[in-house]
Design a protein around this nucleic acid. Structure first.
Lengths: 360, 360
DNA sequence: ATAATAATAGAAAACGTTTTCTGTGTCAAT
DNA sequence: ATTGACACAGAAAACGTTTTCTATTATTAT
């Protein structure tokens, strides 16, 4: 590896001047020598030893990213959003999976601090604010899609209330008056928010809230299936079922179809997340998508803002999502559609994880 | 941050001795002082400044991980496997998404080298061997699940031939004699390997290979759907369809069902990958799973082996997968099963990305 | 003309480690 | 008794930067 010393020798100048040019400090260096140094650095293929720089400046251009579950369908997209900003600004991220079970263990974070990371991002984690503060030891941080109930000033979260009501509004506009709701696990912050969105939409539509139409799943397909089984056993059927995520909505579809009922003709169904399965299920699923990539970007901007000690957003940022209308609620125009219509549109309309568009 | 100097002062000893103890060098230090230093380090909450260590030793305990697509369904699992080993050995990884389009740009790698990473992992990338060597500048590397045709000595890849024939063998054992095959995109190494597995299985079962039963998709659901449409239009129907991945298998199911045919009664279908959808589709999909987590682990072991300059595997390592028998080929015992049976088994049997078991 | 300031650049210190070099004192072997 | 080996420990150099301090020259303001 070529060092500034070598450059200094070839140019015939002190290492101080080379450093001043290459680390583009504000210190005045003559146009002539600046140009010569830049040229030689280029020729020799110089790239700075970041360990040395870090040692001297106590800045590493490294960010610690801590995840609850790397293999969730959201986390990778959020990370892409984060890295989109980080890489553009010359930062790399140390991504560490740190699931619920080991949240108490702080040695990982200790180790990250040893690498003198400049800040932290918590993605979908369960940490409490004080736990984070303890761990981080005054290093700036930001959270994305926090799962816990406790609010956090530096947090970027989906506007679950709004997003949820997007789906319910869609149903009420189609004339549904009796809408069952399969909520997520109550330990999750998002569950309660989405339920609130449901309630608000009902109120907006002048419908009364009926506790007996609320079921509790645990996000999984089987739990959606089981809730729907219970629901069907009861006396009066709803005309629509909204689920707090796509997985449970899929479970609901399977249960409904098993009883010889049709989706959407007999019962309409909406989900939440726009997971890949929403495009593959039969019928395809109307759902709402959180702008995960954008959330990552915003979080990264905020963190870098803190690191640069510039004035920046210090309140939770709620990000709105978009409704994806597919087949599971019927066509708003009353047109009859089939699962295969979707396929016929060709690849363009079909987005999977392999062809993910991120800048939406 | 507390330094070895502070420890040295409190203990009343030179920084050299402290260093020798804390970096557990083989240099002799008396039991007494060793214990005292360890104690004080513990009390003060010492954690080494890794930038300084890196500067001195030219080892960073950092690994560069370069991915083609972070948001694929495999990559995160592979990364978990890698990190499982890395973290245990005190290494962190700088994970960088570097898709096909920017493969020529080497500034990212330059930057990683600036961080003096100790080695590289390429996950699902398209780089040629010489491209990698150029980029890396003698740093050790290993590839996991390479997508390109060119072989690479330090590579951990699924045994696609074997895995593919697992699915075809399953079909032939069930008595199928006319099996159509939807291959993947030919640019991918895996496509040809899986096709080879198909051919080998036919031969094993004494069936002749029929070129007209081979279709080419591009891994997507719609492409599987379209291939199957073509296939159905032709004169004689096959009794089974095997697809080179689950997505295309799902497309096949949709197309078959659209024509009023039943899966598996009229046409059996198998996939490849054991994606999450394989459990959710109706019928659920018989498929084969690559041990991605394990592949990551093996790759990490190999890389650390190279870094430690110990003798290690220098040929491609082929990893075998496992068959997951579900509903889409019918039950081998002739029992009749329904989509909902699967749900009734409860959550235990159902594994999604949220409840992923990694040590399989 | 002179003092004050600005532009420019080198010397050297500093960041926190590891490791070489140099020294002690102890012990066993001659 | 002297040598050699060994266990132990401190001093100091080194890693590649950035930055403070100091010095020289050129420019400007009086």
């Amino acid at each position: 590896m070529v060092t500034i010393k070598e450059i200094a020798e070839t140019v015939g100048v002190s290492i101080a001047t080379v450093s001043r040019v290459l680390s583009n400090s504000s210190y005045p260096v003559s146009q002539d020598t600046r140009a010569r140094i830049l040229q030689v650095a280029q020729d020799l293929g110089y790239s700075p030893n970041l360990a040395a720089r870090s040692l001297r400046t106590d800045q590493s251009t490294l960010i610690g990213v801590i995840l609850d579950n790397f293999t969730s369908s959201w986390a990778p997209i959020i990370i892409r959003g984060l890295q989109d900003v980080f890489h553009r600004r010359g930062y790399f991220s140390l991504v560490v999976n740190m699931p619920w079970e080991i949240h108490s263990q702080s040695d990982v974070v200790q180790n990250l601090l040893g690498h003198s990371v400049d800040g932290f991002v918590f993605v979908e984690t369960w940490h409490t604010v004080s736990e984070r503060k303890d761990l981080l030891n005054t290093k700036p941080y930001v959270t994305v899609h926090r799962l816990f109930h406790e609010p956090d000033p530096y947090s970027v979260i989906p506007d679950d209330v709004y997003n949820s009501s997007l789906t319910i509004d869609h149903l009420t506009k189609l004339g549904h008056k009796r809408i069952a709701y399969i909520a997520g696990h109550e330990a999750y912050f998002s569950s309660e928010e989405r339920l609130t969105g449901y309630k608000q939409s009902l109120e907006k539509a002048g419908l009364s809230f009926d506790e007996s139409l609320i079921y509790r799943g645990n996000w999984s397909v089987p739990s959606g299936y089981q809730c729907t089984q219970e629901l069907i056993q009861k006396s009066e059927l709803p005309t629509a079922i909204a689920a707090a995520n796509d997985q449970m909505a899929i479970g609901a579809i399977l249960a409904v179809q098993e009883h010889g009922l049709r989706v959407p003709e007999d019962i309409a169904i909406v989900g939440y997340d726009n997971d890949e399965i929403a495009q593959i299920s039969n019928p395809t699923l109307t759902t709402v998508q959180m702008p995960l990539f954008k959330m990552g970007q915003i979080a990264a901007e905020n963190l870098l803002c803190q690191i640069d000690k510039k004035p920046c957003e210090t309140t939770e940022q709620l990000i709105k999502g978009d409704l994806f209308v597919r087949q599971s609620c019927g066509d708003p125009q009353g047109k009859d559609i089939h699962a295969s219509d979707f396929m016929r549109e060709g690849n363009g309309a079909f987005v999977n994880r392999h062809t993910l568009k991120e800048d939406t």
